[in-house]
Write a protein that binds this DNA or RNA. Structure first.
Lengths: 221, 221
DNA sequence: GTCTATAGACGGATAGAC
DNA sequence: GTCTATCCGTCTATAGAC
């Protein structure tokens, strides 16, 4: 966490909450855990945030909104520069994924914890987060989904959506587990290595969308 | 849930726990939720299972162990039949993935709920589950990882591990979200459609491992 | 804005009758 | 094996002094 000066109670709370929510989940984290780590009084947390759900939402949107704005801005700029031709697939995927992987690599300012929260959010459905995800996350994903779609007109809609789902799944899984890569790979991959992850993720995603169609259904067994 | 006859209290409890743990997570589910859904007395649950963590572990291993045994048996048989040549990539991935996707499609006997639990387990780390995952899940994953590795000797170890991680991530994400595909795709894909998922997942995984290596690091922006 | 103190509900777990 | 009743700790949230 960066250095705080005056009365940044709210900021300190958000950083502590981010870390614990990422590690333990929403239901596994108590306000006492958070205020304890933050060194803030329990009642003060309620004063600043109202309740636990509002705290979680604040942790979520505080990071996601600026990232989404910058991603959409970069996308719009790239499309403008490409004029009537298409923005390259590599570039589309890079614009979509880089800010997230870089966040996952940020071990100094808590970005890594937000990346883990984001990686979890599609898989552990918190009822009160449904509206937030629909409003903040889905439109941006859909925007990139549409842009990538133009590169894969040969794919049937269902085929394309499955592949897009695999790519998004791989990305969220990576965001949630970029810490811990070292242990899982017995030291071969490093933890929080955004550059390595991105360098592999971009061609991986391109290969997913450009792979030929398997016409006949699976016939094994 | 299937029809129970005599005093299948334990079984009823496991089905109810499976459903609620999948939907709400471990910390988000109370024993009272579970016994309420199961129609079983709270004290009876403790009598049969000891405590909440033991219940979760039981829910987890009860499904996973037989699946892993059958997957390893099929793999061993396929390797024997292939003699000194390699088992095909398609077949390897099919052996690894099919039982899980079929479970995710089982809306009659609760298999779908276990698939969601499995899909969550890599991304939401429960401290008491670490040992179980290391003992029950990792060895099987490693076994398939090794078998697939022989098809990709051209990939550097790090490169291979990243791709394997993407494939596993896509699979777990799919398992956790195979319900809800219809809403997310605006009706184009169906829910719990194991056949469709598998038909796309297998070539997707093959394409991931056979994609050419991008030599130079990403240079965009 | 920050604190102490506490309300009020709910959590997992158990004792002991049947 | 199953039940009622209950213990006891912890939770979120708030009231009210400073």
């Amino acid at each position: 966490m960066p250095g705080f000066q005056k009365s940044d109670t709210l900021e300190i709370l958000l950083y502590a909450a981010e870390e614990l929510f990422a590690k333990q989940g929403f239901d596994g984290t108590t306000l006492r855990d958070i205020t304890g780590l933050a060194g803030v009084n329990l009642a003060a947390a309620h004063y600043h945030l109202g309740n636990k759900e509002a705290l979680y939402i604040k942790v979520f949107t505080r990071r996601l909104q600026p990232i989404n704005e910058s991603r959409l801005a970069r996308l719009a700029r790239a499309e403008q520069e490409a004029n009537i031709s298409l923005v390259g697939m590599e570039q589309l995927i890079e614009i979509m994924a880089r800010p997230l992987f870089e966040l996952a690599a940020d071990t100094q300012h808590g970005g890594q914890y937000f990346a883990r929260i984001l990686g979890r959010c599609l898989v552990e459905p918190l009822p009160f987060m449904e509206a937030i995800i629909t409003a903040e996350l889905q439109p941006v994903m859909a925007r990139f989904g549409q842009a990538l779609r133009r590169h894969s007109p040969q794919l049937a809609p269902e085929e394309y959506l499955w592949r897009f789902s695999f790519v998004i799944g791989a990305m969220h899984h990576s965001l949630a587990t970029l810490h811990g890569m070292k242990v899982r790979t017995h030291g071969i991959c490093r933890d929080h290595d955004a550059a390595a992850a991105l360098q592999r993720f971009i061609p991986f995603a391109v290969a997913t969308f450009t792979a030929p169609v398997k016409p006949e259904p699976v016939n094994n067994r």
